[in-house]
Nucleic acid binder design. Structure first.
Lengths: 249, 249
DNA sequence: CGTGGTCTTGAAGCACCTCAAGTTCGGTGG
DNA sequence: CCACCGAACTTGAGGTGCTTCAAGACCACG
């Protein structure tokens, strides 16, 4: 029994905002990385980026391809994942506006090839810059470097949390954890619930929680019975985040 | 059957080198973070750090305690882990000379409390600095900031790899992965093998691989039968790293 | 309306965990 | 140097949570 009569399917996950120059600059100024540099510095930084658009399904970066560019998403969502040698995939994160991906490390330091894949999950506008050029910005603008360090630290913390969850918890806990994490990042109020603003199949949740699509479905059904979530085809909304939080702790 | 008659137990895991001033400076100069700054800058940086020693078993940082310091290990090894609410622990990494831990993020940005625990696993000498002071260094020395970004990126990559392993692999694969990872970091040639230079109980390997001590023991026994590793009480050495690598891929 | 893909649910099998007993080893004190 | 003790490790057996396989239901699309 899905919550079929009031499905949010038709709420557009992300409008196709075009990537105007104005939007682009506004994006940069809003981005944590560039929060505390002067206006004219934003302009200077802005001029070194170039815009890139992707259609839903396009590869933004691709495991094994030679690395060297750095992307900041402007609009849309994208999936960041790694592929197992046997073809299975682990979904590491869902990126949205303001998030970035790609390599910062120079050719020479760090791997020469991307180790993750990023695919546009809607139409995506992004800005992009070569790693070397980005490093030059970091050198010239220490505060940007500091922010970069902060952001990386926070991502690392998140990854460590994930390691902890995957290493020592039940499927139920892991699914709850993933839902909460996504809702914090992509949540949008909707009918007293928090709708996760991204197309989200069971398969995908499973890939994030390190389980199978079937187990994931069973868990969601159970959550629904307990009135913790609402979910349908391709979407999930949290009804009772607090109780979910308790499942983890 | 452990390899009992030629155990490396008496090879001291880490000599109690004292943390002399000379050693300390040498350590800084060798550290990736400070690799490309001039000699006199190293001195200036050095003067802002202070030395701290820990006995085996001491807490270096502790989950829940108010954050604000940054540590670089000089000598010894330490365990970095997170504690589940139910008391179980997940070993995230084993730190050795040159590794660091603690918080870089300012009070104000990032969490105010450490989210991980670090315990000295031998006598440990470290140098330490307040987060704010460290950030000042990052501002003044852009190349240090760049190096910090690189190191964090690389740690993040490692964490993501771990997420992938924990999310989608068998216990055998995960144990192999952990052993390889540790050997790359703490390996020391010994009798044609690679000895992992750290006291390493089954329990600990299990905590890193996200499994139980018993399963870990079984896996190691199996590896021993296949002549992939040697292992005894508190130590493991890799006999055939290449084959282990194949288990993962 | 069909049609195809997503989701749900059941049932069987397996990998792993837990519990429990036995064994080995390193250290300690006689 | 030897005997003993406790802790770490090993191994077995049973239970279970999860995956896998398979069938059916649902829903968004044409």
């Amino acid at each position: 029994m899905t919550d079929r009569h009031n499905s949010p399917v038709h709420i557009p996950a992300f409008e196709d905002e075009s990537c105007t120059v104005a939007l682009r600059k506004q994006l940069l100024r809003k981005n944590p990385l560039f929060q505390d540099i002067p206006e004219n510095a934003v302009d200077r930084v802005n001029s070194r980026f170039r815009s890139v658009s992707f259609e839903k399904g396009d590869y933004i970066i691709r495991e094994g391809k030679s690395a060297g560019r750095f992307y900041i998403l402007a609009t849309g969502v994208a999936k960041l994942f790694r592929t197992h040698p046997d073809g299975r995939t682990t979904l590491l994160d869902i990126l949205s506006s303001g998030d970035y991906c790609g390599s910062i490390a120079d050719a020479g330091f760090g791997p020469r090839e991307y180790e993750e894949t990023v695919i546009a999950d809607s139409n995506v506008c992004s800005i992009s810059i070569g790693s070397t050029a980005f490093r030059r910005i970091l050198e010239e603008q220490p505060s940007v470097a500091l922010r970069t360090v902060d952001t990386l630290s926070s991502r690392l913390r998140l990854a460590n949390e994930m390691v902890q969850q995957l290493g020592g918890s039940s499927v139920e806990t892991r699914v709850a954890f993933v839902l909460l994490r996504l809702s914090k990042k992509l949540g949008q109020p909707w009918e007293d619930k928090i709708l996760i603003r991204s197309p989200l199949s069971r398969e995908e949740i499973a890939a994030m929680a390190g389980t199978s699509a079937e187990s994931c479905s069973r868990t969601l059904s159970d959550f629904r019975r307990r009135n913790l979530v609402s979910a349908g085809r391709g979407w999930v909304a949290l009804v009772d985040p607090e109780s979910l939080e308790n499942l983890i702790a």
